[in-house]
Structures are given as C-alpha cells and as structure tokens.
C-alpha cells in the first residue's frame, strides 16, 4: 500500500469521515433513545420517519427553486428546509404514536413491534406511491462550492460536513437542555422513572408522550435533511438500514441515555469508517456488528446505560 494508507493524514481523514457519519447516526439514535427511555418500546418505524424527513427537505428545496435557482439566500433555504422537515416529521411522529402505539400501551411488549413493522411498510410504500421509486439527489454542489472547506495538511473537511456537524451539536445541546430544563422534559423523566407514580402526581402522560414522539421524530427529520445534504441520495427505502444503524448506536451508548446515544452514534460512525478504511468496506457492517456484540457482552447495558433495576 503506497497510497499513504499508513499515513497520519489518511487516518485523520477517515476520522473526520467517521465523525460526520456518526453525527447523523447520533441524531437518529436520539429519537430511539427518547422513545425507549419513556415507553420501553422499540420504535422500528423511526428510520422511515427519517426517510420522510429527507423527502420533505428535498421538496422544500425544489419548491424554493432548487439549489441552482434558489429564490432565497442559501442559508435561509437550509434553515427553512430543516424547519419544515422537522415540523413535518414531528407531526408524523405524533400521528404514528396515536394510531400504532397508544392503543397498545398495555399490551405484551412484542405487539408494538409488529405494529411498528406495519407503520414501516406503510410509510415506505406510501412514499413509493407518492414520490415514485426514482432516487432523488440533493445536488448540493451548486449550493455550497465543493471545494469550500478546511484543509489541514492532507485532511479535508468540506463545508457541508462542517455545517452538518455544527447543526447536529446544536440540536443535541438543545435536546439535553429541553429534557433537563423544561417542565415537559422533567415530566418525561418522571414517566420514564415510574409511569404509575407519574400519573398519580398529576402528569398528563398522553401529552408528554406525544411531545416525546414529536421531538424524537423531529430529530429524525433533521437527520434526514442532513443525510441529503452530505450523501445526496434520497429514496423510499433509505430508512431501513439507517434506522438499524441509529438503533445500534442507541444500544451501544446505553439505550435510554441521551449522552449515550451521542457517544454511540459517533463511535459507530468511527468504527464503520475505520473498518472500511483499513479492512474492507464490504465487511464494514459485519465487523461493526461483531464489535457491538462484543460491547454488549462486556457491558450488557451499553456504555452509559444505567444498571437496570428489576422490579419484582
């Protein structure tokens, strides 16, 4: 290998790639973690909300004249894309909760898993019906020049990735402020701790759960737009693997823990980037999953997960 695979620059470049990828995974993971933390259900339709978010962002972009003939400044356009996508995905999250999860709140644990599967099929094929099967491309090259970015020695961080990373950090920071600082956030933690006690304390559980889904899904929508901006491609089936990855990140970090989701996302991104850099891109998923099994066996509750208290 004479192409500098052993060089520091190469390592740095792959690190940067991994962290950006991780930022996206972290945002998806946050949605999983929020919902799991509060309701203890695995929301497998989350990845498809992310897909819808990416499509909303795409159509907002097209509606504003497309990247090359934008009717508003680029910064404003990106802001509107994120705002509309997050709002739309959040509302979708509320609807999903209402139809597919609320009636099942006291059913066996596995029932929501199946209705989530149904939601997932509906969203995927609904998108296929509405948007056709063709793959849309965000076409950001005429948005922000490809060459814009930071060059540190041999490491390149392009403008779009910097933007996405900054946005991801802002959203995560905002989320942890929301969970820790607001009344809804506190109510959410109370429900996560003990739902029955929370009801007795006069907390409106339905409303809080609605908020949880809204915020979690809005984050997925934001992640969808980000993926469009960095990785360009948007299609109806994109949520499946992304959802799986986000879920994985949430689990590794310790499901139910917000800093855990961020840590898990970034670690997953780096692991993927590194395996495809030094081993084989083809095996990167398999190796990543094997690593995760190892993590789970050593720390069954994830890296930052709380020790479970088994109620008898």
């Amino acid at each position: 290998m004479d192409n500098g695979v052993q060089s520091v620059d190469y390592f740095g470049q792959q690190m940067v790639n991994g962290i950006t990828l991780g930022g996206v995974y972290a945002l998806i993971a946050l949605g999983y973690t929020l919902v799991y933390g509060v309701l203890q259900i695995l929301n497998f339709a989350h990845g498809d909300v992310y897909m819808i978010g990416a499509f909303i962002g795409f159509f907002v972009m097209v509606g504003l004249g497309g990247p090359s003939h934008a009717v508003v400044p680029v910064a404003v356009m990106i802001f509107i894309m994120f705002a509309v996508s997050m709002l739309g995905s959040g509302l979708l999250g509320i609807v999903i909760e209402k139809f597919a999860y609320r009636p099942l709140r006291n059913s066996p644990r596995i029932a929501p898993l199946i209705s989530a599967l149904g939601v997932s099929l509906l969203l995927q094929n609904g998108a296929l019906l509405l948007f056709s099967g063709s793959i849309r491309s965000y076409d950001t090259s005429s948005f922000v020049p490809i060459t814009a970015g930071i060059h540190l020695g041999g490491v390149t961080i392009d403008g779009m990735r910097i933007l996405v990373l900054v946005l991801a950090l802002i959203l995560m920071f905002g989320l942890s402020r929301w969970v820790n600082g607001t009344q809804v956030g506190r109510a959410m933690r109370a429900i996560a701790f003990d739902r029955d006690a929370a009801i007795m304390m006069g907390i409106n559980v339905d409303r809080v759960i609605m908020w949880t889904f809204f915020v979690g899904s809005a984050l997925a929508g934001a992640a969808g737009v980000m993926v469009g901006l960095v990785f360009l491609r948007v299609y109806s089936y994109m949520g499946f693997l992304a959802g799986l990855k986000g879920f994985t990140a949430a689990v590794v970090g310790g499901i139910g823990s917000i800093p855990g989701a961020m840590l898990g996302g970034v670690l997953l991104g780096i692991a993927e980037s590194m395996t495809s850099a030094y081993l084989s891109p083809n095996f990167s998923d398999a190796i990543t999953f094997l690593l995760l099994i190892a993590v789970m066996l050593i720390k069954p509750r994830g890296l930052l997960g709380r020790r479970a208290i088994v109620k008898v």
Partner: peptide, 22 residues
C-alpha cells in the same frame, strides 16, 4: 478492486483509499 456493500451511503472513506497516482 474494493468491494462495497450495496446499502452503503457514505463513500468518503472508500474514496480516501484512492491513491494520488490513480
């Protein structure tokens, strides 16, 4: 020749493997 999974979304880490002389 580098094999890549069909579901791969990010090609940055693959492109980083391309040598300067390619």
């Amino acid at each position: 020749k580098i094999p890549v999974n069909e579901k791969n979304a990010d090609y940055a880490s693959v492109v980083a493997r391309v040598s300067k002389s390619t």
